[in-house]
Write a protein that binds this DNA or RNA. Structure first.
Lengths: 223, 223
DNA sequence: CACTGTGAATGCATTCACAGCG
DNA sequence: CGCTGTGAATGCATTCACAGTG
């Protein structure tokens, strides 16, 4: 039966395996749409977004198509609507996510104060440190608690995401405590791979590693 | 001419298009090898590395094979030798990279103090801020200078990599000044896409975006 | 007409599977 | 043997190219 199979015309928009790189780009689109919205622009084309983000227009359309159909033929995408839809897809629409910080050192303190988190719907509710000298200190409306209390505090404050900014050697222990406390995801700044149950999502940001990926390219092609 | 083209049998080990994801993994291997070295382990197999880093053994071997042949059949890789070789590939062997920081706010100060940078061969030589109140302040052996002096300071200190920790609206301007000063790469913490000449490598780390990629997964499958 | 949404084609990255070596 | 190094196979992600739509 070598006939051309009839189009299944399935009620797509359901579930396709969304590439991880696409998820990252959703945030880019959101940022750009937010700016357009502030500037009062009402419609934007995939071509325009692509140009401003260093992508191809096909890529933009493909990325969005994983989640449904938002565009209007001949006009493009309605800025406000798409922006709101992306916020909802990324889970940052109409809610706040609770964070717990472990490690109130230089980096930890900076994260507590980071405006970008608050602006985008993330709020620290808990901060702990192993150094007794820091306990009781108030930073950004949060009182630093003892590291030993991390599991209980995590649970009692309904923490969604744990943020780890402790030395490498202490990170795995802290990770375990956060998992005990019921976090569903962890953002880790310690330079180690963390072991966690697979229903807990872990993302590691190793700052020195970011620099190493730059130097790799610098020592190769001088261009 | 539907013949099978003859194998070119090129003198490999030269240049193959190294996947960007592989570059990231080289840093992981380095970290792991460093630990093994401290523990006095002399040989390690691709299997062992893979297990500890959440990869497959084939992946490890393939990654390393982009840069030559380091292993011994039946024994694995000599820890010290491979570690040193990776340091050299990533450009962090026997040299220090000079950094300039723009933006001495919470995040900027934390980066200046970040031990991980120093340990892995990165050293801040210059720090500037737009706030006159901060100029002259000393942080970690560095005196904060006026933002206006960024291009000259970048050049006079032979800065290799610029680090941007200023608000989004100021980032593009700072980027341009760093390029003027002759940096070859930029690590950007401002939540904007930077425009730079293509011979200047830019890497952006948007902290809130890291959280968004976590929440995306949290709001979808509960698992 | 300008633009979206998407099958099909292409191009990368990962994995398989095994020849070859110490 | 055990383990590397690597062609070939597979599996993903991106791009092409165009039918379809307001």
């Amino acid at each position: 039966m070598p006939e051309i199979a009839r189009k299944p015309r399935l009620a797509q928009s359901a579930s396709r395996p969304v590439p991880e790189a696409c998820v990252t780009r959703l945030s880019w689109y959101m940022r750009e749409l937010h700016l357009l919205q502030l500037r009062g622009v009402r419609f934007v084309s995939s071509r325009w977004l692509a140009k401003h983000l260093g992508l191809t227009d096909a890529q933009v359309r493909r990325d969005l198509s994983y989640f449904g159909q938002f565009g209007t033929s001949g006009r493009g995408y309605e800025v406000i609507r798409l922006h709101e839809r992306l916020r909802s897809i990324l889970g940052v629409s109409g809610r706040t996510w609770n964070l717990a910080l472990a490690g109130v050192g230089n980096l930890g303190s900076a994260l507590l104060a980071h405006e970008g988190f608050r602006e985008r719907g993330f709020r620290f509710r808990v901060a702990v440190d192993a150094d007794p000298g820091k306990i009781g200190e108030r930073i950004q409306e949060i009182t630093v608690a003892s590291a030993a209390r991390l599991p209980q505090l995590t649970r009692s404050h309904s923490i969604d995401i744990g943020v780890i900014a402790v030395p490498a050697l202490a990170a795995q222990k802290v990770c375990k405590q956060m998992v005990q406390g019921g976090v569903r995801a962890i953002l880790n700044f310690a330079p180690v791979r963390l072991e966690a149950p697979e229903n807990v999502r872990v993302r590691t940001v190793d700052l020195a590693m970011e620099l190493e990926s730059l130097t790799f390219h610098l020592v190769r092609g001088a261009g």
